[in-house]
Amino acid sequence: MLNFFLRRLGGAIPTLFIIIAISFFMIRLAPGGPFARERQVPPEVLAALNRQYHLDEPLWQQFLRYIGDLLQGDFGPSFKYKDFRVTDLILQGFPTSLQLGLLAISLALIIGLSLGIWAALRQNTIVDYTTMGVSMLGIAVPNFVVAPVLTLIFGLMLGWLPVGGWGHPANYVLPVIALCLSQIASIARLMRASMIEVLRSNYVRTAHAKGLPERIVLRRHAIRAALLPVVSFLGPAIANIITGSVVIEQIFSIPGIGRYFVQASLNRDYTMVMGVTVFYGALIIFCNLLADLAYGLLDPKVRYD
């Protein structure tokens, strides 16, 4: 198990390095340098700016400097908010984004798995068709359409939930739902398909033949095995939720990292955009690692290989 984990960790480090490298060099590819599009900057000011941000050094030196800073948890200064470090902005928004994301992924798992199992057990009935039809809707309709529609219905027309604002638990309801709806749908479909396959498997037949009660056959034999594809989907699901949070935070004016990211992108705040990309990249890699671990716990074949 430790071996397995270390190997996965070994795979994660080059990935992270590539993310850092791509984002670093992409910014440096910007025609004329990061400040070239600033309004009419006098040459001497530009030179000073370049020096201040070490842009006058050779590229490889800048890259090493950036990596060195990253290792110390420093994402560099913001290009736009001169007094802020990117790290501070990220840390400021992270707790909010984390809450949002954790709530969304937990809800997606609980509801998605239940729906998937339910539909699988009632395969080819109305329950199944309805769940799957609705979940197709959930997958197809983008969260930035879902969010306004939910707001329209529950916020404006029915007046049950607050439309904006942040801090009160009621503020979480609409953003979290908008964020996790498509993941609920994906997980439900995945779990249904996998559950149907497992229910047809020979080992579930064996479990029935052993005279085990339905409850044990389902819990111990079927669901456990059917979870595996969902666990492999967990990595992408988390990535989807992180990406989705960018838009959701924007729509609901939630003070998280995503919102800073959008503002930074629109402001052409290079270091901020780069910082958030690297930060999210690292986060996604970390979550993938956790998902791998969970997979290893469930599947002995992986564990011992």
Partner: peptide, 20 residues
């Protein structure tokens, strides 16, 4: 079944639960 009457199957590779 499983107690007084038991059954074994053709394919031993898939008849045991691989995860338990």
């Amino acid at each position: 079944r499983g107690a007084k009457m038991a059954m074994i199957f053709q394919d031993p590779m898939t008849s045991l639960n691989p995860y338990l």
